[in-house]
Design a protein around this nucleic acid. Structure first.
Lengths: 109, 109
DNA sequence: TCCTATCCATAGAGTATCTATAGATAGAAC
DNA sequence: GTTCTATCTATAGATACTCTATGGATAGGA
């Protein structure tokens, strides 16, 4: 039945990295944060989120640490690394270039 | 060695439909048009383009006709159908909504 | 005691892209 | 007249990313 994606494919890593620039967060918190700051337009499913976090860990763009949450639960907190911050910059500029280019195509008379 | 895509995944169909609102074009011409109007930022590979055109045909969003080009070559011209025009409207509004939402996440302090 | 929200994670399917390849021909260059 | 380049179509296979669907655990409130 092929549903439409809840976000633009290829943008999830960038959104996660950006979210982590504010503060370390656990996976669930990242998903909530993206949903909230996008005003409920973007929904990150667990089946997208956790594989994405594994990718980011593997690339060294985030690091993870088990901690207790404020509500006394066990959770894995992800922190942006310097390499991750650099990568975010790259992805941001590529994304903006893409969007600008698409905008040109769409506005072309 | 896993290269980055030449366009944002999920946007190709929209770009093709938009390109065809100006005039019917053959595949090669569509690729050139997108490349040109995006100022060489977006490149549509053949392995993406022709499968996309097959999808659009199957959905009834474009129709195809074999003709001669101005340079006397045999080529398959694609024309936007009314359903395709409607679909383009849908995709445009979804895309803009996505971009706006991503923008909110990226600008969130 | 049950329910809901919070938290983690993986398996499998589907979709869309890329690279690589194959083929044909018009017209220009040589 | 032969070769080269640009024009044109199309498919196969690999890869990447997302989704749906699961499975599990626990804190705190009803």
């Amino acid at each position: 039945m092929s549903k439409k994606p809840d976000l633009l494919p290829g943008t999830l890593d960038m959104l996660i990295l950006k979210t982590l620039t504010r503060a370390p967060l656990h996976g669930y918190g990242i998903a909530l944060s993206i949903k909230r700051s996008s005003e409920n337009v973007l929904t990150v499913e667990e089946g997208s989120l956790y594989p994405a976090l594994q990718r980011l860990l593997l690339q060294g763009w985030v690091k993870a640490e088990w901690k207790k949450t404020e509500t006394n639960r066990r959770a894995r907190y992800y922190t942006l690394t310097p390499a991750g911050r650099k990568q975010l910059g790259i992805e941001l500029s590529q994304f903006e270039q893409m969007i600008a280019a698409i905008g040109r195509v769409l506005q072309d008379a």
